[in-house]
Amino acid sequence: MKELSLNILDIAENSLKAGATKVEILLTEENNTLTIEIIDNGCGMSKKTLENVINPFYTTRTTRKVGLGIPFFKEAAEQTGGSFEITSVESSVDSKKCGTKVKTLFYTDSIDFTPIGDIVSTITTLIHGSPDVDFVFKHKKENGEVSLDTREIKAVLGDDIPLNSIEVIEFIKNSLNAEYNSL
């Protein structure tokens, strides 16, 4: 992946596949580190699956035999000297607290740090594909914060206008970009 925002899109797709109704994407930049957290309330994974997800030759899909999404993301973090953590609570264990959390730490001053890239495009792509899911996005930088909560947008739109109408997607894109530019 050429941009971390593509890894984020890829990992968040797993959350959606797990039936999440809420996905949080949190980026925190501090000193020379970047922490990325992707937290969902999907169906979670069993201990056995959790042990397997970092193995590139493991996948739940049937269309092919490799699953590279998580190994790619882990590699991107570890090649900077950072770390990768994944925790999960299966819905059969606790239906209220179920979900998966992926947390990665990057050292941004490493020569092997992949740039974040077009994160706004990742957020709009996710909203476009899953308008019924609640997305919370927060990007904390040293000089301020950019944030979005699709529940706030839905509250304004009401029931008549879908979140993935092009006009709304354009609005989200423009206002996030404006927030980044004003930092």
Partner: peptide, 12 residues
């Protein structure tokens, strides 16, 4: 999230 007023205009 800013400019929710603008969003209301788009909605209408």
């Amino acid at each position: 999230m800013k400019s929710l007023a603008e969003l209301a205009a788009i909605r209408d």
